[in-house]
Amino acid sequence: MDDDALHSIGELARLTGLTVKTIRFWSDAGVVPPTARTPAGYRLYGQEALARLGLVRTLRDLGVGLVDIRRVLEREITVTEVAAAHAEALEVQIRTLRLRRAVLRAVAGRGATPEETELMHKLANLSDRERRRLIHDFIDHAFEGVGADDAFMTAMRGSVPVLPDDPAPEQVAAWVELAELVQDDGFRAGMRRAAEDQVRAAEEVGRPGPEETRKLADIMRARTDAARAAGIDPASEEARPVVDELVRRSAELSGREDGPEYREWLLERLEIGDDSRYERYWRLVAVVNGRPETPGMGPAVKWLIAGLRASGVGGRAEG
């Protein structure tokens, strides 16, 4: 090919496979200016224009805008700088698209109403900072000033859910449910009341260590799970030895003696803390963070409450 040859816009289109309309548009934008013109004013393009067209097409295919392409061609910025900026922009777009996909799958999976769909979209599209602020606001409202120990507050603040860049539909659904839950005034008030009660109880009987508390929780789950598996009604005589063992172990942990007064005290503590939404909170946090769910205490607490009530604790026996 003659390096000095000039081509009409039609010839350039045949050489490159681009349309005449596209070449004319890029030429009008100044990224592929004509090399010369015919006496009649028609554009003519040389080898430099042909080379430019190759670069322009590549950059356009990568999503680079004509303004930036022109700056590259005029040596105002480098291709490296443009590539880095657009790669970062694409990362943001990809994260957004992944989140939208997860929201849509979550909507389809739960058969959401238009109102629920709008809420899910709004809550899922909060920034990481906005999501953290939402959870920290809940923690402050529920626990600030109640006297909870530092370890508990550190654990609460350290368990903030973090929605990943490519969330699964169940993570989006869990985050939306969690965001709704922590804004519920009733849940906040219940959490605060339970926290205040735990602080008062610790002041009365001392604060058991985490290892002892965990051991008692494991025993409670094991004994009540076995009782339920065996079909033992907590109100039955068959349940009495299990109830007595659990109360005795709890009293030992608290440094107190088992008896009517302690059982009344224990029943009140159990009932104040018996709210399925507490465990739901931790399950949702685990799902959002992609971690295994820890066994809950809800069924064990309910079984023991029923057993205590059936034995006459609390002023009424359940029959």
Score class of each variant (00 low, 15 high):
Pro234Trp: 00
Ala173Phe: 04
Arg277Tyr: 02
Phe25Ala: 14
Trp26Thr: 03
Leu246His: 10
Arg223Leu: 11
Ser276Gln: 15
Val288Ala: 00
Thr58Ala: 13
His141Ile: 11
Thr96Cys: 13
Glu261Asn: 04
Arg256Glu: 12
Ile272Glu: 01
Ala102Lys: 07
Leu284Trp: 12
Pro299Gly: 09
Arg228Cys: 04
Ala102Thr: 08
Ala148Ile: 02
Leu50Thr: 13
Val64Phe: 03
Ala300Met: 03
Ala300Tyr: 03
Ile135Asn: 04
Gln183Asp: 10
Gly111Met: 10
Gly109Thr: 04
Leu99Ile: 11
Pro299Ser: 14
Glu180Met: 12
Pro208Thr: 13
Arg248Val: 07
Leu126Ala: 09
Gly41Glu: 04
Ala124Tyr: 13
Thr78Asp: 07
Leu59Gly: 00
Ile9Arg: 05
Glu76Gln: 15
Gln93Asp: 11
Leu53Lys: 01
Asp68His: 15
Pro208Asp: 14
Gly190Phe: 12
Arg316Tyr: 15
Glu130Gln: 15
Pro295Ser: 14
Tyr262His: 10
Ala13Thr: 03
Leu181Trp: 01
Glu211Ala: 11
Gly10Trp: 06
Glu252Phe: 03
Arg221Ile: 11
Arg316Lys: 13
Gly255His: 13
Pro34Met: 02
Arg200Phe: 02
Ser159Phe: 03
Trp26Asp: 01
Glu237His: 09
Ser250Lys: 12
Asp233Thr: 01
Arg207Leu: 10
Arg280Ala: 09
Thr213Glu: 15
Arg309Leu: 02
Arg105Cys: 13
Gly158Ser: 11
Gly290Ser: 08
Gly298Leu: 08
Ala194Pro: 04
Ala83Trp: 04
Ala251Glu: 08
Asp2Leu: 03
Gly296Arg: 05
Asp218His: 15
Glu170Tyr: 09
Pro164Met: 00
Val107Trp: 06
Thr78Cys: 00
Asp68Phe: 14
Gly259Ser: 11
Leu270Gln: 06
Ile9Tyr: 06
Arg291Asn: 11
Val20Pro: 01
Asp128Gln: 14
Ala286Lys: 10
Pro260Asp: 07
Arg105Trp: 13
Leu66His: 06
Gly319Val: 12
Gly147Cys: 01
Glu271Pro: 00
Ser236Cys: 07
Ala306Asp: 09
Arg207Cys: 05
Arg207Tyr: 02
Pro167Trp: 09
Leu266Cys: 05
Glu88Met: 13
Pro34Ser: 01
Glu293Val: 15
Glu130Arg: 14
Glu177Val: 09
Arg269Thr: 12
Gly54Arg: 10
